[in-house]
Simulated assay, not measured.
Amino acid sequence: MPRPLSVQLYSVRDELAADRPGTLERLAAMGYGAVEAFDVTDDAPGLARIADGLGLAVSGAHVAHALAGDPGPVFDAAAALGTGLAIVPAGFPHEDFTTRDGLARVAERLNSLAPRVARHGLRLGYHNHWWEVEPRLDGRHALDVLAGLLDPDVFLEVDTYWAAVGGADVPALLGRLGDRVQALHLKDGPGTKDDPNVAVGGGTMPVPEVLAAAPDAWRVVEFDACAGDLFGELAASRVYVSALEAP
């Protein structure tokens, strides 16, 4: 059974703060079948109840606080959402991605967390931005090098837009990473670091080729920022991605 299209809730962070049930209801009404959490310590059981009532799966959970202090409560909260994926969304110095020693430190920290997260029934992942892709070591993107240092149990959630901003040929990158990639962040725009996103399919990203390169990964639509009507752009993104993947 195909996985439902997901949306990263960071996209609607302000709307969630004002009206969480109403915001999730709007996403479900658009046709999204899943959500990805970004602040798991903010009433995870409540979010799970609302999502379940709307028929929304939880595709994954960003665990931003897992690198600081005791990660146990963070992993408990992620598990309460009913997802199997706990994703570290950054948290390392950018400089660590410019040297092999730095990448070894990143890999060691992630690898050390993998057994702990597994005890909560979860699998640990890492989510990139541009700074994990732009540096090259012996001609290879830092993210490629990092993948080779990670334990097999640690997966990647590739933010396809940030990978492109970092200079990667994204379909080729996904092809090299293979089944290490368990989730994709789909976003679009002019391909620059500071400009807002547009609906998926309305910018510079080669979305059909990206999807084809990681056929089994969760598809998660995300907006870091949106200059237009956010809900309209989210709806247009769902229509575009769903049409590409229609049987």
Rank of each mutant, 00 (worst) to 15 (best):
R238K: 13
P89W: 02
K187I: 11
P73R: 05
D224G: 02
F97V: 07
D195F: 12
Y126F: 15
C226Q: 08
R49Y: 11
L211Q: 03
L124R: 04
A48K: 06
M1K: 10
M1G: 14
G121T: 11
N197R: 01
V106Q: 10
I87G: 04
L174S: 04
A236Q: 06
H129S: 04
V239L: 07
T83E: 03
R13M: 13
L124S: 05
W131A: 03
A243D: 13
P115A: 06
A107E: 07
G69K: 12
R3E: 10
D216N: 13
L47Y: 03
T160K: 00
A66D: 00
F155N: 02
A107M: 10
D229S: 08
Q8Y: 09
G178M: 12
G175I: 12
L110K: 01
P2I: 13
L81A: 06
A172W: 11
I87K: 00
E209I: 09
A48S: 14
W130C: 05
V181D: 00
A172V: 13
G60M: 09
V12I: 14
G167M: 13
P93Y: 09
P45K: 12
A246L: 11
E95V: 13
F231W: 10
H94I: 11
A212E: 14
D169K: 06
Y126D: 01
A90V: 11
E233A: 14
V145H: 06
L186P: 04
M30I: 15
N197Y: 02
G203W: 01
L103G: 00
L177N: 00
D188H: 01
L24D: 00
H127N: 11
E245C: 09
R49I: 11
R20M: 14
G202P: 03
L110N: 01
L113D: 04
V221G: 02
A104C: 08
A28W: 10
D153E: 15
F92N: 02
D52N: 15
G46K: 10
A227D: 14
V117T: 12
H65I: 05
L122T: 00
T41E: 15
R109C: 03
A183D: 00
Y161C: 08
A147N: 05
V117L: 08
A28D: 04
A225D: 14
D169F: 10
A114G: 07
A90D: 08
A86W: 00
D224E: 15
V207W: 03
A64W: 07
V145R: 09
R109Q: 10
Y126W: 14
P247N: 05
A86V: 04
A217T: 06
H141V: 05
H120T: 13
G82I: 10
M1P: 08
L156T: 00
V12D: 04
L244D: 04
L124A: 07
V35Q: 04
R116Y: 06
